[in-house]
């Protein structure tokens, strides 16, 4: 089975926010309020897993978790609270989370949000309605979209659909499927008639999955343990031995000196 994915075509979006409403309803998120931790009330927040960004035009661009194929958040999480499911969604286990927020730091799209104003806070983000998927239902936002701007399916199939649309309307679309390859590919794909670079921290993300960068350092741990341990033990042994030898030599020299000074003392010692 190929993993599931979602494809959003921003040219079809009319900005009605039906997806936001459906998401709020399904996840029981309640009304938005303007907390100091966000810039606008309709930013992504702990009560808003997806939102519509308005760009000049007007263009409506949906923002949500991209469900990376090799997610940085999951590799960053030290207790495995974030993890990539075989079905495609990146989901969060609040029972494991310790609240270090390294996932928020690591995300190349700046997606995860935090319950800043709760005494028991959790990380909040889109789960691609993982529970609904398991129950054989579609993600709520996909179901709610009146224009079919967001569609759901297997990633390979959606990539084909996207390529077809880019081919059919080469002048309309930016000739790029956002999420096809960058940071190793994402499970939320986007095509658009305007560049969508503003959705990530840097305009051009490389194709290398981010977890590979930390693994490069992390894989050096066993050799470092053995190397440093061995080196320290070796130095200790060598220096310790040398000091012992020196002490012995010094003692011997002293004895010899004494013996030379007083030959009788040396004889006495031998007796």
């Amino acid at each position: 089975m190929s993993a599931y994915a979602m494809l959003t075509d921003t040219t079809l979006c009319i900005g009605c926010e039906a997806c936001v409403d459906a998401c709020k309803k399904v996840n029981g998120l309640g009304p938005d309020r303007l907390w100091p931790e966000q810039k606008a009330i309709d930013d992504l927040s702990a009560t808003r897993y997806t939102t519509i960004l308005r760009r000049p035009g007007p263009r409506y661009v949906r923002q949500q978790c991209r469900h990376c194929v090799d997610p940085a958040c999951a590799s960053a999480c030290l207790v495995g609270a974030m993890h990539k499911t075989p079905e495609g969604p990146v989901v969060y286990d609040s029972g494991r989370c310790m609240g270090c927020r390294y996932c928020m730091v690591a995300c190349p799209y700046g997606i995860p949000r935090y319950d800043w104003n709760k005494a028991v806070p959790y990380v909040r983000k889109c789960t691609m309605c993982y529970d609904r998927l398991k129950a054989g239902k579609l993600p709520a936002c996909e179901e709610a979209c009146p224009e079919k701007a967001t569609i759901f399916g297997e990633r390979e199939a959606l990539l084909k659909v996207a390529r077809q649309r880019l081919r059919d309307n080469p002048r309309k679309y930016v000739q790029r499927i956002y999420g096809e390859t960058e940071v190793g590919g994402t499970s939320v794909l986007m095509i658009s008639d305007i560049p969508l670079d503003f959705l990530a921290w840097k305009p051009r993300l490389a194709d290398q999955p981010l977890p590979q960068l930390t693994w490069a350092a992390l894989s050096k741990v066993p050799p470092v343990v053995i190397g440093v341990g061995g080196l320290m033990a070796g130095i200790y042994w060598v220096i310790g031995r040398r000091m012992k030898m020196q002490a012995l030599a010094a003692a011997a020299a002293e004895q010899a000196a004494q013996a030379a000074e007083d030959p009788r003392a040396g004889e006495k010692g031998r007796e």
């Binding site: 999480c77 495995g80 310790m98 927020r101 390294y102 992390l218």
Partner: peptide, 26 residues
């Protein structure tokens, strides 16, 4: 103070995720 759920501070011991640098640090 910084952890949101400090009472889970011991979780790295029971839920190890060895691809995380933070796990190694912890």
């Amino acid at each position: 103070y910084d952890l949101g759920l400090p009472w889970h501070i011991w979780h790295p011991m029971i839920y190890p995720q060895d691809h995380s640098v933070l796990f190694e640090v912890a």
